[in-house]
Structures are given as C-alpha cells and as structure tokens.
Amino acid sequence: MSLEQVRDDIEKEARARADEIRAEAEERADEIISAAEADAEEIKAARSEEVDAEIAQRREQALSSAKLEAKQQRLEARRDVLEEVYEEIEDALVDLDDETRERLTRSLIASAAEEFDDHDAVVVHGRADDEALIEGIIEEYDGFSVGDPTDCLGGVIVESETSRVRVNNTFDSMLDSVWDEHLKEVSAHLFEQ
C-alpha cells in the first residue's frame, strides 16, 4: 500500500469520524433545543396559568368590592329613607289637630297616674305649647301640678319626688318604642323586593 493510499484512508476515516461526530453533535443539539423548547412551553403554560389565576382572583376581588360598595350604598339609601319617614312621623305628631292632641295627652296622663299613690305630689312636664292643655287635664287629678316644659313632640313626663317614680309618656318615647318594635316590618313594607 502506498503512502498516498494510507493518507487517503486516514483522511477518509477522519472525515467519516468527523461526519459521525458532527451528526452526533447535531443530534445532541436537536435534543437540547427540543428539551429547551419543551421547558419553555411548560414555563409559558405555567406562567399563563398563574396569570389567568391572578386575573381571575383580581376580577373576583373587584366584583366582591363592587358588590359590597353597592350593598353599602343601598343600606345608606334605605337608612336615609327610613330617617325621612321617621322625621315625617315626628312632623305629623307636632302638627296633630287640637282634638287628637287632647285625647292622646289625656290618655297618657291617665296611664301615668296609675303608677302613683293618691297622696303623692305629682309633677307633669310637657311640651311648652301644650301647657294650657295639660293644666286643663290635670285639674281632674288631686296633687298634680304642671312642671317646667320639656323638649318633646307632645305627651307628658310625669314624676313624683316622694315616690321617686318617673313615667315617660312622651310622643317621642312612644314613637321610639313603636319604631324599634316595628322597624323590620316598616322596612319590609317600604323596600319590598
């Protein structure tokens, strides 16, 4: 065998080995690229799921916050309406006609009088505008006198120093009591859904 042929064989073998190394390297590079692309897809999918979850969570928080704010505004509006109704009732009590005011005041004094003994010195306080009315009614009761006016819508506060009994039969106290007792019904009637 000639030197040239040996050189050609070595060269041929070297080329074949180089081609084989290159093919292996390309195959390995393809595997690395494939693995990197798969990892990138997994990372992208995971990140996409995280972003979608965060968007859903923020959307839910915004929706909950909006619902809560709307509920608070509804409650405030209801509270305002109930306050208006209460004020209208107060105005109606102040503006009662004379006959109705006398009938109610007479009834409230009679009810309060039951709480006192016959020998008690009893003082009746009422609205300043009702002083003459109260004086006329208590003429029927022994030991009753008119006291200082009190700030109220009407009715009376009846008290005795001797027995330490105090009866609050003002329209205000009656309204508060009825209002508290029937607020749920009033609210249901006003805000039927």
Rank of each mutant, 00 (worst) to 15 (best):
V6P: 00
R7G: 08
R7K: 15
I10C: 05
A14S: 13
R17A: 15
D19G: 08
E27I: 01
I32C: 01
I33E: 14
A36T: 10
E41W: 03
E42L: 13
I43P: 00
E49K: 14
V51M: 08
I55E: 09
Q57W: 06
Q57R: 15
R59G: 03
A62L: 12
S64T: 12
A70N: 10
Q72R: 14
Q73G: 00
R74D: 12
L75K: 12
D80W: 01
V81W: 06
E83R: 13
Y86R: 15
E88W: 04
E88R: 12
D91R: 14
A92L: 11
V94T: 13
D98T: 07
T100L: 11
R103I: 12
R103A: 15
A110V: 13
A113S: 10
E115Q: 11
V123E: 11
E131P: 00
I134A: 05
G136F: 00
G143F: 10
V146K: 10
G147Q: 04
D148F: 01
P149Q: 06
G154M: 01
G155I: 01
V156P: 04
T162G: 10
S163M: 02
S163D: 04
R166V: 11
R166C: 09
T170N: 01
F171W: 04
F171R: 02
M174G: 00
S177N: 12
S177A: 14
W179P: 11
H182M: 02
E185S: 13
V186G: 09
H189Q: 12
H189F: 11
F191K: 01
F191M: 01
